[in-house]
Simulated scan of single mutants.
Amino acid sequence: MKFLVVGAGALGGYFGGRLLAAGQDVTFLVRARRAAQLNERGLRISSPKGDLVLPAPPHLLSEQIAQHYDVIIVGCKAYDLDATMASFAAAVGPDTAILPVLNGMGHLERLAARFGQQRVLGGLCLISATLDEQGDVQHLNDAHALVFGELDAATSPRAAAIAEAMAGANFDARLSAGIRQEMWEKWIFITSLAGATCLLRGSVGDIVAAGQARVPLALLDECGAIAASHGFPPRQPATERAHTMLTAAGSPITASMLKDLQRGSAIEADHIVGDMLARARQLAAPTLQLAYAHLKTYEAQRARQAALNAG
């Protein structure tokens, strides 16, 4: 089975590197700068689950794609999805399965519109990882799960084959018979975490210490109601787990969106918070509306500053 991993960043580098180390046929699709790093240092992973050094990981640039792949793993930011789809389009064949691990649900529709519904799997990952200044992958916690499955079926021969290929890799690969449900539950949590930590500019522990745990819990309730209106009410274990994580005293957890915001970087405001709000239909979601307004104001300020700098 031939895997094309789009990008060799924190997510692609970690899961693709683990697959490659397990003997799978893996190629990384990268940009020129990342290709130079891989040529110089190889792919290096520092992890509580075991460090890994791959001196010469197979990689190529978009214009060098010369064959179709069985599985394409996509883990870009949602605002980069159009450019990313264009970059790997030549690798998509009649039987290619595309496995995205983006947050939210809107990317599924965009991938299906470009490549056909039958090629798109559902997927999510549970990991905290980043690239350091040298381009090495730093895995920051014990979680390293990749969950995937057919969007409209419990299973399939291709999904089973992917699960078998991933079984020997040093991460938790799981084939889900209800991937849409699991994706909604993660989206609910991510939106609640991002909305609260960005709106209040602090970690979960800071928010709790300020006596404002009602904010992430209000977001949790509003997002849960939206999911339920689309036929995916969050299950009790997922709700309890999210409630615990969003109210944990002293917790240093923040959303990656807050880190992007603090750096002055682009954020996935429309793709995570905005898309959830757009699916509210007639449901009241005042806290979600406020969180989205805050993020859009940041984006307006960022655009204004960019215009001033360009002038």
Rank of each mutant, 00 (worst) to 15 (best):
M1I: 01
L4H: 13
V5A: 13
A10W: 00
G13T: 00
G13D: 00
G16P: 11
Q24L: 05
F28S: 07
R33I: 05
A35K: 15
L54P: 10
L54E: 10
S62M: 02
Q64S: 15
V71Q: 08
G75N: 12
C76A: 14
A83Y: 08
M85H: 10
A86P: 02
S87K: 07
P94Y: 02
D95Q: 14
V101K: 05
L111Q: 00
A112I: 01
A113V: 08
L121K: 01
A129F: 00
G135K: 09
V137D: 08
L140S: 05
G149Q: 04
A153I: 04
A159L: 06
A160H: 10
A160L: 15
E164W: 02
E164C: 06
A167P: 06
L175A: 01
L175K: 00
R180H: 09
S192F: 08
L193P: 13
L193K: 11
A194T: 09
A194K: 02
A213G: 10
A213T: 03
R214L: 02
V215S: 04
L220T: 07
L220W: 02
E222F: 05
I226H: 01
P234N: 11
H243Y: 14
M245I: 06
T247L: 11
S251P: 04
T254W: 09
K259L: 14
R263N: 13
E268C: 12
E268G: 12
E268K: 08
H271C: 05
I272Y: 09
M276R: 11
A284P: 06
P286Y: 07
L288I: 11
L290Q: 14
A291F: 05
K296S: 05
T297Q: 09
Y298E: 03
E299V: 12
G311K: 13
